[in-house]
Nucleic acid binder design. Structure first.
Lengths: 366, 366
DNA sequence: TCGAGCACCCGAAACGTTTCGGAGATGTTC
DNA sequence: GAACATCTCCGAAACGTTTCGGGTGCTCGA
């Protein structure tokens, strides 16, 4: 019965048998491709890797056989034979201890990095120092096991042990932000005059007494911004009074506290430049509590252009970095360093001033 | 002279030369460890891998020799020999096309995932579909090259092609959010009554006419939340009027537009539940433009507790998910699925209601 | 004394790739 | 017609592991 069914049943059975005999769930190997193409394994390998001493037509034959069989080279075998070959992935370790404060920038930056890396055929290996291990252990592991070709290092600090380690072992890397002017690796950093647009804006509005709230010194980014702040003022023949300058944290509480101190000084400034938006939020609140209206009595500028900034009342004038741009630069610089280990260029990114409602001319003296 | 010695001397000299020529800065190999320990390569391997048929003392000798030499096994060789061994890394592909809107949650979630993964000895492989490739190509690649043991899939949609592919090839995975009640993989999702606390809160305040603004249907999370919304109302014997419900986007513009439509309806609700904070921001603006004061005339609740929410005026009442918790669950579920391929459990997370200033009793009818 | 059973050990073969050295053609030069 | 490039191609040896099958000795009971 069911004479139509029988043959198909047999067929499937045969297929199963054949598969079972050979290697049912096994990928085709180079040898299979060679056989399919009627070539030697050697020539097949050379053909697929586009070497010089193989005839054009042979190459074609090999390639065709390869995709007829759906061949993908076995990465492990290749890496075993060519230990110096690229891993095609770049590492990034998230220092969750110093990164405790959730960086509103981080998601966008990672997205941009991954995007650019993928576009260049690289992947991103994310890891975090686990448990009681040293921070550099995460790096050590990754390179001992040859899992990555190089690293992107974020939030570099003064005399950063991670950088010391990587440089010492001559592992390619790129940093975002930078401490030292002499760095044997490429760097993506803010322009030296990164705060200039903001200060220019304030000065144009008529401000001449400008304070600032900085993030903790020791982070590359902080020292740099502080220098930039003073330099931008100097360009206008201005100077910040010591009592108008302070900081020591990342969060709005610190901004609040420092702003309070500044407001309480003898001759408070008419504008405050906060080194990030959270600090600016704190300053905003402090101004409110001091009965100062923003922007009529006091202008405030932030940095980062966190999403919150545009929903505030008053909406915060801020300097925006393009995470996309930075991510792309980071990856490209690192890839460059892979090809040319001595590469140590600098790419500078300039934030864009986003003018909103928190800046205005200073109150008329009466 | 010393005709017996000559050859040996020559030999050793040759050996040394060969070594020196070969690769001075090369990692120690298993053979080196074996020699150092005075064992065969076989036994050394078995000793280091803690197999059964090797004497206790031998194990010790091998281990000691290994760390005396600073030996790390060559991953490539091991994987070549044991193709089914774990890769110790989990994959996550960022669909940058659907993730265009920068998710404020993403950074925190990734951090949590990486943290938990690292704590368990796993890394996170991030990639993105490159160029014109299909979205699933990124997955295909990663598994063809055996780079990951499993995947975390975010933002699942109705009939998600990625899920189809992964399930079909029986690759372990875990999703955040879920469409189907029957899923052959573990899932981390919101509780069915995720909106209940918010609705309870509104009802307790006295609201009985509540609208909502949803994110595009087709995303697992959206359908789920919509059901939860209706269910939570029903629990109080309430029902949402069709004209009080709408949505089709993620951003504040959509929130603004939909809220406007709702306000223009015959009998507008006294409260609106927005499916994310951005939508709520838009609704807030719309209320303002309609001359409705929030919360006096109209209560608004968001979801996500984006940082902006607490800086708004009025500060937004919102439902907060713990990215840390979700990330940890995702990783743990996936690791479970690696050990037990048929695992298909559900972990539900419940958002916490953060009550701020945007909710209050409805206006007294007069 | 023998064989069996046990606890431990080792040589050698594999995994899938690249590459080194050589080798058959074919053309080119004296 | 010998010598020598040039263009193709191939066999076989690696790379560093794991594991299979086969050893040693040794003890124990018969």
């Amino acid at each position: 019965m069911t004479p139509t069914e029988k043959p198909t049943e047999n067929q499937t059975q045969n297929q199963r048998l054949k598969k079972a005999e050979k290697k049912p769930p096994s990928r085709p190997t180079l040898r299979d491709v060679a056989r399919e193409a009627g070539l030697s394994v050697t020539q097949t390998s050379r053909a697929l890797n586009d070497h010089s001493d193989v005839a054009k037509q042979t190459k074609r034959r090999a390639v065709e056989a390869a995709d007829r069989l759906g061949y993908t080279p076995n990465l492990a075998a290749r890496r075993l034979k060519m230990p110096d070959a690229r891993t095609q992935s770049i590492g990034l370790v998230l220092d969750t201890s110093s990164q405790r404060f959730s960086d509103p920038f981080l998601g966008d930056l990672l997205t941009a990095i991954v995007e650019e890396a993928s576009a260049n055929g690289f992947e991103l290996q994310l890891s975090a120092p686990s448990g009681g291990d040293d921070v550099v252990d995460a790096y050590k592991q990754a390179i001992k096991q040859k899992r990555v070709d190089g690293f992107i290092v974020l939030r570099v600090t003064n005399d950063d042990p991670r950088l010391r380690f990587l440089v010492e072992h001559s592992i390619p890397l790129v940093t975002f932000g930078c401490i030292d002017d002499a760095h044997p690796y490429p760097v993506v950093r803010e322009t030296d005059d990164c705060f200039q647009p903001a200060i220019d804006h304030l000065v144009e509005l008529g401000h001449s007494s400008i304070g600032c709230i900085y993030v903790p010194l020791g982070y590359g980014i902080s020292d740099h911004r502080l220098r930039s702040f003073h330099r931008a003022l100097a360009a206008h023949g201005l100077e910040a009074k010591p009592e108008h300058v302070g900081g020591a944290g990342f969060h709005e509480e610190v901004g609040y506290e420092v702003a309070n101190r500044i407001f309480a000084s003898e001759e408070p400034p008419t504008a405050i430049m906060a080194f990030n938006d959270l600090l600016a939020f704190g300053a905003l609140q402090a101004a409110k509590d001091h009965g100062r209206s923003v922007p009529d009595d006091m202008s405030i500028v932030g940095v980062d252009d966190v999403m919150a900034s545009r929903f505030l009342k008053p909406a915060l004038t801020s300097m925006r970095y393009s995470a996309t741009e930075i991510g792309h630069h980071l990856v490209r610089q690192l890839l460059g360093a892979l090809d040319e280990p001595t590469a140590n260029g600098e790419v500078t990114v300039r934030p864009a001033l986003v003018i909103r409602e928190s800046t205005a001319p200073p109150p008329k003296p009466h």
